[in-house]
Design a protein around this nucleic acid. Structure first.
Lengths: 153, 153
DNA sequence: CTGTGTTGCTTGCGGGTGCAACTAATCATA
DNA sequence: TATGATTAGTTGCACCCGCAAGCAACACAG
């Protein structure tokens, strides 16, 4: 079958997206860097601080963060070294390892969350306006929905 | 000053975006993988095939690909090894190195472009529809514009 | 022409990540 | 209970990438 190439509009939209994502992530990382953590670390803090008893099983956390098991192991290594997270074994299933937010980790979260929120607001939400934010959610809601439907895993 | 937290809509839009991007890129990579190249390699082929005389200076290519100089050096190493690109020195300025698309590279491009286009169409453009594609372009156009305005570099 | 600053590219190094292999623990089934 | 399959987590390995340093070539002021 003949390939149906991209129209100009499609081309522009897609390239705009691809190139923006790179720069956007770089800016968000840069805003967090002075506080000694990367976006990946921040997301760990977010998930753990929202979790019941401030702890999650490694495998659940890996799923939430879209990380491979090994990736999460090393990320936690770093955060344990920083004192933000502790590992704790589980009584009811001795295979599982809890990732538990420490008091220092919570403090870091409280310190950094406003910074990151302000960063996202500055670089994304404010430029987009309410209407743009709604479009953003709509667009990626549809993409995500379609991805999950075709890859139930 | 008090932090202005995200509203529910903002929260949802943002998280939807962050989580979708990861999965989306993974799917696009996966569609390309059977052909022996990654998205990064594909983008090199795209830029070179569109360039005059099928060649670009390393520094220009690095800028186009949003890669650091060292990152591009190694990416090209791989593509030279695969026979898709050749390095050629420049007569008028012996500092610069041309990255030149080979016949094999062009053939690979012709083989893979329809695959990637179909992949993007399947996972993004079709689910979004014309209206969604326009929104995508509009949203990231605004984000990109704002980023470039605040970071002239 | 000479010295200084700039530009283009490569290399050494360290950090982050996924895959495959491995261990340990649990579950399922005979 | 015993065996095989499954699940949780870690480790070895390889790859990708950016930063800093280094080298070579160019640009320009004096």
């Amino acid at each position: 079958m003949a390939t149906e190439w991209l129209s100009d509009v499609e081309q522009d939209s897609w390239r705009n997206f691809i190139m923006s994502v790179h720069d956007l992530m770089a800016v968000l990382e840069a805003d967090l860097a002075p506080h000694g953590l990367a976006m990946g670390d921040y997301e760990v803090l977010v998930w753990l601080s929202e979790a019941e008893q401030s702890r999650m099983r490694m495998c659940d956390l890996a799923g939430a963060l879209q990380l491979s098991p090994s990736g999460l192991t090393r990320r936690l290594d770093g955060m344990v070294r920083s004192g933000w997270v502790e590992r704790a074994s589980c009584d009811s299933d001795r295979r599982v390892m809890w990732a538990h937010l420490t008091a220092d980790g919570l403090a870091k979260m409280n310190e950094v969350a406003p910074v990151h929120v302000a960063s996202v607001r500055q670089h994304v939400l404010t430029p987009l306006g309410d209407e743009g934010v709604a479009q953003l959610g709509e667009v990626f809601g549809r993409i995500r929905e379609h991805l999950l439907a075709s890859q139930p895993t």
